[in-house]
Design a protein around this nucleic acid. Structure first.
Lengths: 230, 230
DNA sequence: CGACCATTTGATATGGATCAAGCGATGTGG
DNA sequence: CCACATCGCTTGATCCATATCAAATGGTCG
């Protein structure tokens, strides 16, 4: 599970480097407007939709500030979260012409946007750009495979994996600030909010973590969590 | 779920087209031998290992005849199957330097092999090859995302998805010849063999399928299965 | 302060796992 | 060609982890 923590290295950012980010003030759904430049910047309010299921996959996105969830709502109303994206991470790399997942800002979020067609035509001329696109998609594949393996495990293992992964990705030592709700975590891990809550309480009783507030987690004994994983 | 059925179009095969396939007779683990050509062919016996976890990711593979499973064995001994690959499908596209999954022949299987380094250097010169590598990885990502969504559903939904997907991919109308065991199916769907068996029996009682033998399935009423999906 | 929403905690229900036979197909040696 | 052994599949009985339902607590914002 920890292998996925290295999943978006800085060399991939060149895609977003052309042109100084020029702030464009827009609401949700304004993406389909006339953004042709690479590296255009947009802001989204908490819970605002960045793109919806079945919309055309016209852009790549990079989180500057805030956090993003991608998700799909299933027939029965259940919601599966595909991934969380934190600052410096890239999303929207879906393959087909239309998005299978939707994307929303979890908190107020700033994002860079690149038109897919621009990136692809650059890739046709510059093999290092092509290589980056491939690598990014490969990293996303690896992340998804790890997520898939996660769903085969017990509730405690899933939550432990999640905490260790978040600690690694937010790079703030043993103190994690969770931007997402229990419902988000549950929908990511395939558990109910009650089960997530109970496991966290259990970890706290076992002195593996502290929960100063419900959004802040402090890892007190990583080895207890680590032992649950393989 | 059905979107994934179109996941490896023929345009991707150019990777394997250089040089007439020259049969090389080898056993498992012989991959690390001196295969430098593109499109070299190898045969594997039922249950033979094609590559193992942690081996270097030096090749891409394409099934010519037979069937392949990729899998990972977890700490507790459970085995998660990542995917099944049927004739004309490509596998081994993992991102890192080492395989996270192992690959085995499910039945006696013939495979084409391409050295990864050769494909990559061709991609650096030919942007259509680069594009194909990217597309293939993207298709694999889509397949994995669908697999992930599958694991959130009930046992009946998982089995129904599996049957419809196999029917589509084996392109033999309503009659499916399953190369894999119940254990394989269970490990793919995250269910026990008992549950897989019970669901199949239930589908037969509901007149959705026939089971002339345990390896052959005839879809009698796809709409019953379809109704379980979204 | 009060209303609202998210989270935690408690009690009960359930889908699929586990444990345990039985059954059927496939292959082997006589 | 048949008797028997083996292995994979099916069927049945019971158990358990997590879901579901319900209520209490806590945190946030007007």
């Amino acid at each position: 599970m920890l292998t996925e923590t290295a999943f978006q290295n800085d060399s991939c950012c060149r895609l977003f480097d052309r042109g100084g980010p020029n702030e464009i003030s827009v609401g949700p759904h304004a993406l389909s407007g006339a953004i042709e430049l690479m590296g255009a910047s947009m802001s989204f309010k908490r819970n605002a939709e960045i793109y919806g299921e079945q919309e055309p996959t016209d852009y790549f996105y990079k989180v500057v500030r805030g956090a993003v969830r991608t998700y799909k709502v299933l027939m029965d109303g259940r919601r599966q979260i595909g991934a969380f994206y934190l600052p410096d991470e890239i999303f929207g790399l879906e393959t087909g012409d239309e998005h299978v997942f939707s994307a929303e800002a979890i908190v107020d979020t700033k994002i860079l946007i690149v038109k897919r067609s621009v990136a692809i035509s650059r890739a046709a001329q510059d093999s290092t750009i092509a290589r980056q696109l491939w690598t990014l998609t490969g990293c996303e594949l690896q992340r998804t495979q790890n997520h898939l393996l996660l769903l085969g495990k017990s509730a405690a293992e899933r939550v432990a994996s999640f905490l260790l992964e978040m600690a690694d990705r937010s790079q703030s030592g043993d103190e994690i600030r969770l931007p997402m709700s229990r419902q988000d975590i549950g929908d990511y891990l395939g558990l109910t909010i009650e089960t997530v809550s109970r496991v966290l309480t259990r970890f706290e009783k076992d002195a593996a973590i502290d929960l100063p507030t419900c959004k802040r987690v402090v890892l007190r004994d990583r080895s207890i969590l680590q032992r649950l994983l393989d």
